[in-house]
Amino acid sequence: MTAIYSIFGRISETIEKLAAIHRLLPWILAFALLLPLPQILSALFNDYYIYLANKICIFILLSVGLNIVKGFCGQVTVGHVGLYAIGAVSSALISLHFGWSFWLAFPIGILAAGLAGIVVGLPSVRLEGAYLALATLGLGESVRIMIAVTPLFGSSTGLLSIPAPTIGSFTFDSYTNYYYLVLAAAMIGIYLSFSILRSATGRAFMAVREDTVAAAVHGVNVTKYKLLAFVISALYAGAAGGLFAHMPPGYIHHNNFTIIEMVTLLLMIVLGGIGHIWGGIIGAIIVTIIYDQTLEFYFYQPLLFGLTMVLIVIFMPRGIGGMIDRYLATKKFIASQEEKSNAAS
């Protein structure tokens, strides 16, 4: 365990050192390091793992987005998967019915999800806790039902043959090619999440999370920031949805956006640690891999996932991210104490 903490400690130090040179340097380096992953996975294992890497990148985008509203701003939402569906269906429809390029359809899908984010966020102005969870759950499920019963949105057959993105003659029609797109999207999503967290907006989100009354007293427009958190989170979900829709084989169905997907997403951020960006990323990776490795034990999967969630809440309420944070804080404290005692002696 200490070895794992130590690795995270070293990674954290290296990132800080690189960021001191230029704030984008760690991100560019990480992107460059992850670029050959499909070739490595293909050589060591097989192409299935490239598909899995694509899914992980999409889930990272989703969980990082959910963390903004849930982790940073403290708003309980269970309707995130509905926004993911809106992004997916909007982008797919625009591509299929108007024949527009992915590069136009994708941002429109993100915007559609952002607008829907306002609708999902509106109850947060008056509701809190379990009531807000119920309201967002209802909205999320309504989206799925609407897709299921509307022929234009694919209804029961789903939307077929959604075109893959292209740049000139280069088509993102294989999982290897698509990986470069989802990796870039995930990296940008993580970077923006950190930027938001460190900005005045991020601090306002955290103030709302800690105490809405105290935040309001200190001049934070609580309603505005609650809605903003929902909208930003929805933009992430819309982006993830658009990427999911255009990923080969280019097919979406309302069954891809059920409450089970929402619970899986929640497990990712609970395991990773609510409010920790890295935690959400780690959660997305771990849950996707565990889910994949237990595919053949399908009768026990819901039990396994349910039990994991309960055990984490009891024994690791702050998730993996919280444990790492605690370790790093303890390490810094010990170092500062040692420094003080050295200076005194």
């Binding site: 097989n46 299935y48 999982y175 097919y251 595919l295």
Partner: peptide
């Protein structure tokens, strides 16, 4: 589970792995 994304994942896994 009668879910397209899971079916696709199964097919890719069975074919490649």
């Amino acid at each position: 589970e009668c879910k397209s994304d899971k079916g696709v994942a199964n097919a890719i896994k069975l074919i490649n792995q």
